[in-house]
Nucleic acid binder design. Sequence first.
DNA 1: CATCATGTTGAACGTTCGTACAAGTTGTAC
DNA 2: GTACAACTTGTACGAACGTTCAACATGATG
Lengths: 204, 204
Amino acid sequence: MNDGPTILGVVPRSSKDDTAGDSEHVDGRRARGEKRRAEIIEATLAVVTRDGAAGVTHRTVARQAGTTTSLSTYYFATLDDLLVAALTTVADAYTARIRDIIDKPGDKLSGLAHLIAESAGSGRERALAERELATLAARRPALRPVARRWRQNIAELATTLTDDPAAIAALVAASDGLCTAILLDNVPADPDHIQAVLQRAVRN
Amino acid sequence: MNDGPTILGVVPRSSKDDTAGDSEHVDGRRARGEKRRAEIIEATLAVVTRDGAAGVTHRTVARQAGTTTSLSTYYFATLDDLLVAALTTVADAYTARIRDIIDKPGDKLSGLAHLIAESAGSGRERALAERELATLAARRPALRPVARRWRQNIAELATTLTDDPAAIAALVAASDGLCTAILLDNVPADPDHIQAVLQRAVRN
DNA sequence: CATCATGTTGAACGTTCGTACAAGTTGTAC
DNA sequence: GTACAACTTGTACGAACGTTCAACATGATG
């Protein structure tokens, strides 16, 4: 549908992947373009954080990014493209955080509990933005696989603790429900309390 | 807040509840008015179901209800009023369902599991609408107390099963997370599996 | 140098939005 | 019947929206 040339020019990775030679004449124009693209995504997240997903328009995003409306549509022909890119970015960040917990030594449930507890403090607005985008995913199929990643990451963490499928499902559900409680009930998130609830899900 | 005269005239229930005498000169105008108001709320839910909360405007709701835009603004001066009324309606329905489970004999966890499992089938779109409104509540304080009711209802159900606060919190979180899994992952919801996960939360 | 691809801008089109308001209709009260 | 309250409609305004397009700027290519 939106396979216009202006969009193709925005995804240069496909034209760079064709050869293994990496530093082979990096196009300065595309380098700037990718930087701009990242700025626009960051601006989108800022808008979602401030005004919610409903506040995301080409105009508001462009204003936040300090560019023009036309440039936003140049990189993201439709608003869906923009939301997919934004959701992918936050999902990537969360994936990295959880992978950190999985890889590093230490109590993984404790690490997860502290990660969830962040949703009450500094990470609250970012968590709200992610949740809003995830809810949007239920209605827009393009967003669904990205939104599913968060749950899969926690499931992967769970597999390091137990083999029981019911326990894995319980931990994923508990993590999600705890985030809801923190974001909606605005409860002060005590990491110990969170960990206790998580422990209930995975214990034998 | 929005206690304009046009709104006050729309909530005659307070003036009818004052006396047990029911047929005491029922104002035919207000009777029609309440009917209209209910139709508009129902239309709002239909719009949320079809197009999401973002699709709710005075115009789309009025079109869905078969009336004019002016009438929608007459009953609900702002969109927030409309969304609060819609969320209240679905929350009332859910409250009644859960209270049924609490009051009637039988395994309460099984009843809750079947209620959650409905989100995968016939009740999916309604559940999605409710979830979208609840997400909206995180950003609009006016919606928050209504959105909180659902969790409180499940907590009340949990108190009939255990006294452990952690177990109660776990059951609430598990219920919410299971709904997310069903709605977002589009997993076929097996009531037995759901009940098993719920059981994990409340067992000693 | 000339030529082209990429990025960037400003302006404009038609549509929908929230909101307001005057006018009309229907039911109630005296 | 007259006066009033509640409900209902049609119309209109300014603002914001998605989208398009021609023009300009800049880096790459030969």
